[in-house]
């Protein structure tokens, strides 16, 4: 199978999955006790506004037509109005989504790369004390309770030591100042991102490291490693040219499988650090019964996970020619 074919096939599969999720949510909204209309329309609205919104969302139509409206509204970006913000949901999502993608992708990529790199090193020192210690530390990191470690970081780095912002993504006074250029602003975001990123990194890197370690050990007993050794390659060349690329394939698979786990962690991290992302928005909306916002946030989080899945699949096919052809 060529790479294009693979992408097309996986995209179609993902589209189907997305439709199932979309429809599942519709069903849940109508199965749940209570009135679906009151869930989508802010009780504080004026009756005229409410009526307009109801007809826009098709909530006055028979059920099957409501579904058609629902799907159509999704693709035209009409998710209703957020109760809390009093603004169209699509605007809120549009602002929050990039922040989530920034934090999510950088944490996944960084932790996977670090896991691969360190796992390779540790496997090479199998049986030595460093191996045992790194293994145990990785296990501990992997099972740390994320919100707690986030709170702990805020307490230690931002409160006790200082030098780190307690919350948010930007320093308002810097952004208000017309003199601060794009460079300063980027630096400011990175400064705010450091602790959330570190939290997610620590939670993820351990498991990737352990997978890389054991996959590396398995790879080292493969026949082609013997070939490489017989060819006269030194140990470093064997590790980096032959064992490493093959051993990192299971890590890529595991990144794909743990994407959902990562987005859970991302939402928790955003909440504790008040990072203005879509995951925090979902948790906030759910806590405040802001259903239109909750629904749309969930759908967009699903889209992020699905697309990330596609990217991981394509990456895997790119790294492993056996899948590609």
């Amino acid at each position: 199978m060529s790479l294009q074919k693979l992408i097309i096939r996986r995209s179609l599969e993902i589209l189907v999955i997305f439709f199932v999720i979309l429809s599942g949510l519709f069903l849940l909204f109508h199965l749940a006790p209570g009135d679906p209309v009151s869930r989508m329309v802010d009780p504080t609205m004026t009756p005229e506004d409410a009526e307009l919104l109801v007809s826009q969302l098709g909530l006055d139509q028979p059920l099957w037509l409501q579904y058609v409206y629902y799907v159509k509204n999704f693709f035209t970006g009409n998710f209703g109005v957020s109760f809390h913000y009093g603004r169209p949901v699509v605007e809120v999502i549009g602002e929050r989504l990039p922040n989530t993608i920034l934090l999510f992708t950088s944490s996944v990529i960084l932790s996977a790369l670090a896991g691969i790199f360190w796992g390779k090193m540790v496997a090479w020192h199998k049986g030595k004390p460093v191996d045992t210690w790194v293994t145990i530390i990785s296990l501990v990191c992997h099972t740390l309770f994320l919100p707690w470690i986030a709170l702990l970081f805020i307490w230690i780095f931002a409160y006790k030591i200082g030098g780190f912002p307690l919350n948010g993504m930007i320093s308002p006074e810097l952004w208000m100042d017309p003199d601060s250029g794009i460079f300063l602003k980027t630096l400011d975001i990175m400064h705010h991102m450091l602790l959330p990123l570190l939290t997610l990194f620590i939670i993820h890197v351990g498991s990737y490291l352990l997978i890389m370690r054991s996959s590396m050990l398995e790879t080292l007993s493969e026949d082609y490693i013997l070939t490489a050794r017989a060819k006269g390659l030194n140990e470093k060349q064997i590790r980096n040219r032959h064992a490493g690329p093959n051993a990192s394939l299971p890590v890529v698979t595991s990144v794909g499988l743990s994407l959902a786990f990562s987005i859970n962690g991302g939402a928790l991290t955003e909440t504790v650090f008040t990072w203005p992302g879509i995951g925090r928005e979902l948790i906030f909306a759910v806590s405040n019964n802001d259903y239109p916002l909750a629904l749309a946030s969930f759908l967009f989080i699903s889209i992020v996970v699905l697309i990330a899945n596609l990217v991981v699949d394509v990456l895997y096919a790119f790294l492993d020619p056996r899948i590609r052809y």
Binding site: I21, L25, S302
Partner: peptide, 21 residues
């Protein structure tokens, strides 16, 4: 199974709890 695997379980349960009380 694939489909359930890509669902962020924590967030789904959250959504359900908001719908069902």
């Amino acid at each position: 199974a694939d489909m359930i695997m890509v669902m962020p379980s924590l967030l789904v349960v959250l959504l359900l709890s908001s719908l069902f009380g």
